[in-house]
Design a protein around this nucleic acid. Structure first.
Lengths: 341, 341
DNA sequence: TTGAAAGCGCTAACAT
DNA sequence: ATGTTAGCGCTTTCAA
């Protein structure tokens, strides 16, 4: 009891060759007699025989495993993204190998290499932080890779999908500007990250179009956390910086901002308006519900996975570098209702 | 460029046998001359050669992969748990295969079977919903399995770790009772789940000890979501049910409760006190911060993983079914400060 | 419809 | 210190 049967055992028991058993395992349409087929299936079931994916993988050099590397599962930003990948893989018979990079280039590199060791059929890299040098090297391993949420040189991946951060930032800023705000604080995560760079661009452009000069004392970069939003805003308040709204580069930062505002006795949105970015679940759960610029993470993740699998399976079409338009969600940290259109 | 080298290629190029290359790959302490070793390492590096974990897995029948099955990554409850597993695996050179069961026995079963196909070295099942029958069957496959957060017959797993839900519920209830509440609503997730059953027991006992008769109209089971907490509480309010506190079987439910209370214009905690369960990150982020009964998920996950690996590696000690004591965290949805002790 | 044989990339005795 | 040989569990020609 509990013995691990192999294809040879089944073959022997059924008085057929391994090849025949293999055929029914992969239910090759033709090539196996009905009776034989039934007999083999029966004993496989009876013996609780399960073909080893591992062995088939080495035989076919195709593992049906996909690697997903994200900064941190426990960051409230990623779960829906993972779920998108996981669901699409499930629906297509692939397994998911997950690892956390903590946005540390060294860890990211190691995990990326682990994935090639594991012979995954492809990998999805989220918000990668590797330097382009290593990524270029990585291509040597010939494992298809797609990026989510990070813009790199187009040759570094087989595909990518990101939100249009510049456009999103512009939307948020235009809204804030349109309700009369002039001094708008802008807080964002790591300054070097493409998303932040692009949002900064949107921030600048919106200001410029409104004829407002950019005040450096209002823009600050830190990381994508509640803590950063909270402490940085407390700091600004403490220093007596004047402002009438804040645009945050992530919902987490935005929530930190609201917390700081509350703690300081400022009414949101009556005195200060705030808009976040991303549209994570938490932005809707938190009270007051955060106005934000939403990117459809779950769907983006599915799409990225679809791209990857189509590349792997050689059925890939053309447009492989996608930028999706975010949408402005006005909730309770902004005053106006959505502008009709 | 981009060719996939194998151990044979390396052997050939270095004029040695595969065995020798294998030795340096696994850096067997003895058995390889210094010079040969360097030479082999050099060409491995130059050619970007990476040994196939897959192939080694079939050769050694040990994959260094662990399967983790959870209900839903995107449920705010699981991320820290996953992170605990992932971290411990990382530290020990194992890979993680993740899948979502959606608490659906059928999916759970399929994923469990996928894991044996993948020949993972062991699996961790979170809040499993399979019937004990299947779980008993599953043992036939001889893959070590540990449970987190669900109590099953001890023979169904090689180990398990759960919070002491009964005790936790009692703690919450005693606190609520001690501040004068008599009519305490109790909302929990799926009635069939062991956690809920145990908490119900704690609820009953606390009431009994306080000499209060259990009022069935105050207890309701649904699922572990904000929506359930919210809609059920709205319902109770609408029906005019009288109560002065609520104990929720999960933080998510608790937050839903607070939302409903706010919407109904009830002051929390002044008019109604509420205590949640679990101690997820959100309970601390949400405003008002939720009082709760915390279980150390991250550490529990690490411990479960430690148990699993020690079983796999045959270094397992004894106590394999652990129940951890939760702690009462009093925050802003309860009136009193912690009772000194 | 079925089988024999070679091969996938690696490890592990057992020799030398 | 190194090589030979036989596997690990499966797939895949090529024949029959």
């Amino acid at each position: 009891m509990g013995k691990k049967y192999t294809i040879s055992d089944i073959a022997e028991i059924c008085n057929v060759s391994k090849a025949t058993v293999s055929r029914v395992i992969n239910n090759k349409s033709c090539g196996v007699g009905e009776e034989t087929k039934r007999r083999i299936q029966k004993t496989m079931k009876e013996l609780n025989y399960r073909p080893s994916s591992l062995a088939r993988s080495v035989a076919t050099s195709c593992s049906h495993m996909i690697g997903l590397i994200i900064p941190d599962v426990s960051n409230l930003f990623y779960p829906s993204l993972i779920r998108g990948v996981s669901d699409y893989l499930d629906e297509n018979g692939y397994s998911l190998c997950l690892s956390n990079s903590d946005s540390d280039p060294k860890k990211e590199k190691n995990h990326l290499l682990s994935m090639v060791d594991l012979r995954v059929d492809g990998v999805i890299l989220c918000s990668g932080v590797s330097n382009e040098n290593f990524l270029a090297q990585y291509r040597k391993y010939n494992v298809p890779i797609v990026f989510i949420g990070r813009t790199f040189d187009i040759h570094l991946s087989d595909g990518s999908i990101t939100g249009d951060n510049t456009k999103g930032a512009e939307m948020a800023m235009k809204h804030l500007l349109s309700s009369g705000n002039r001094r708008i604080v802008y807080l964002d995560g790591n300054a070097g990250v493409s998303g932040a760079i692009q949002r900064y661009e949107g921030y600048r452009q919106a200001l410029m179009q409104a004829g407002i000069e950019l005040d450096e004392s209002l823009v600050h970069f830190g990381d994508f956390t509640i803590e950063f939003g909270q402490t940085k805003l407390e700091e600004l308040i403490r220093f007596g910086v004047k402002f009438d709204a804040v645009f945050a580069g992530s919902d987490l930062i935005g929530i930190g901002v609201v917390k700081a505002l509350h703690a300081a006795g400022k009414k949101v949105p009556d005195e200060i308006e705030v808009i976040g970015f991303d549209g994570i679940e938490l932005s809707e759960i938190f009270e007051p519900q955060l106005s934000t610029v939403r990117k459809p993470h779950y769907d983006m993740a599915r799409e990225a996975t679809r791209m990857l699998l189509s590349i792997i399976e050689g059925t890939a079409g053309e447009i492989r570098h996608i930028s999706v338009q975010p949408t402005l969600i006005l909730r309770n940290t902004t005053r106006k209702k959505p502008i009709s259109n």
